[in-house]
Design a protein around this nucleic acid. Sequence first.
DNA 1: CGACACTCCTGATGGC
DNA 2: TGCCATCAGGAGTGTC
Length: 280
Amino acid sequence: MPELPEVETIRRGLAPRVEGRRLAEVEVLDPRWCLPEEPGPVAAALRGRRVERLGRQGKYLVWELEGERALVQHLRMTGTVLADPPVVPAHTRVRLELDDGTRIVFVDPRRFGTGHVLDGPARAAYLDARLGLEPLDPTFTAGHLHALARISRAPVKALLLDQRKIAGVGNIYADEALFRARIHPLREARRLTRAQAAGLRDAVLAALQAGIAAGGATIDDFRHADGARGAFQDEFLVHRRAGLPCPECGGPIRKLVVAGRGTYVCERCQPRPRRRHAPL
DNA sequence: CGACACTCCTGATGGC
DNA sequence: TGCCATCAGGAGTGTC
């Protein structure tokens, strides 16, 4: 499932191939992709435009086109973007052809991925309404994270997964960051100390940077733009490692459900929060 | 406003 | 071996 490091990996692989090129042909094969807009008008709005920059915000891939127009794309669970695949893959939802003949496809078996054409300030308005702190920006400080945590009664994992608070962290990197910070995912966010918030900030950044350095995590569908697999799944410390020994203490990694997500934890390294005393 | 349940979707998985 | 029920989960929506 593409999270920030996976989307960033796609962006880095794709940017040199698309920036400065024109979208010579655009075909939207799955109407669900661009709902509530129709495939025809969406393709027409993209066709002929030059790609000025391929950007990323949170988990969104942002195609900045000439004329203040942007394609804001989200890959959700199973989306991938491939450049010049040897064959048109199954589950291809959109096809692009660039003015140098490069063929780009958006592939998405589960069809959760989306793409929206937004002009001018509508792009920033769309993203600002959905995305909070960008973890790779200098604005992602311990102080800002602590301020967010203090006003939330939710489990800290739910805070990390809330894109309107922190943009780009998904289920994999939330588990990895909480383990690195030695914080239990069920801990109430507002009960984090300042030092824990600082440690968590560093751990989120470290987990994301490790993911980017490894080219993202390929569990099933994710691929680089050239079709290569990521390697970060081989470096998971706890995620999807239930029953295996904790890399730190050797204790058993357990699987829980937190915020409705499969959640992996070493409860020796990440002590379960004490139940607060019931009121008398 | 926050927290939670429900929904979308389809390949993978497990039970019998 | 085949069939079916269940599961996975990011984000939008609806409800309290």
